[in-house]
Amino acid sequence: MGSLSVSGVTKVYGVPGAPGAVTALSNLSFEIANHEFCTILGHSGCGKTTLLNMVAGFERATEGTIAVDGTPVGPPGWERSMMFQDYALFPWLTVRDNVMYGPRMKREPKDEARRQADELITLVGLAGFEKHYPHQLSGGMRQRVALARALVVCPRVLLMDEPFAALDSQTRSFMQDELVRIWRHEPKTVMLVTHSIDEAIKLSDRIIVLSSRPGRLKAQIPVDLPRPRDEDHPVYRALKKQLRDMIHEEMEEG
């Protein structure tokens, strides 16, 4: 299970109403169904990271509630694991130990943790690299480790903050295909944050477009295209144009 509901969420940094207070998100509501891949799209500063931080439990909403499977979210935990743009792998641990970290924190016995980790390492295509350290891997490989590490704990919701933004464009597009492959093999509720229109269309079941600051719900656009998605498909191109216009509009207002 893993449905996410965000209802009436407002986030103000600083004291609301006081000078210097920044309203990052305003009265935002949406739902993500179980095993749905949902992308939050919006341009820089519209509060995407803020939203992710609140879902993860690093910050509290000023108003409104965020719930997973009907239960309001508490402090961070494995039910809402997260992937970071800069990988955030533990440099002192090998690939295997990085992936085993979550199961170990869940107090799984070592053998079981290792079995789970090796399974995920194979799934993300890193079999043979178990004993490497992160600094010995390329950016794409590191992000695979990060994906394995976030998946191995069986989160209800997988959170990703611009996971491929640090990669070169070829690796990025390859990793997007890989993510789709892995997600179909291991369906998960995913909330991914990005400002790349292509990434949003390529990956998601549904795209949630945020307005510029303060972030409000601007549109929800389902993507009904078979995966893997072809960039030259007319629906893909129409969708891309629609989203680009929307984002442009926001930038002019913002």
Binding site: S81, M82, F84, A88, P91, W92, Y101, A150
Partner: peptide
């Protein structure tokens, strides 16, 4: 210590004591 390492460990289910023991101490070594 890189704040994202601490955040990563917390989203993987680490308690505060776990974070100190397995992340902060190691990263500071």
């Amino acid at each position: 210590v890189d704040a994202n390492l601490i955040r990563a460990s917390r989203t993987l289910g680490a308690s505060e004591w776990d974070v100190l023991r397995t992340v902060v101490f190691k990263a500071a070594l």
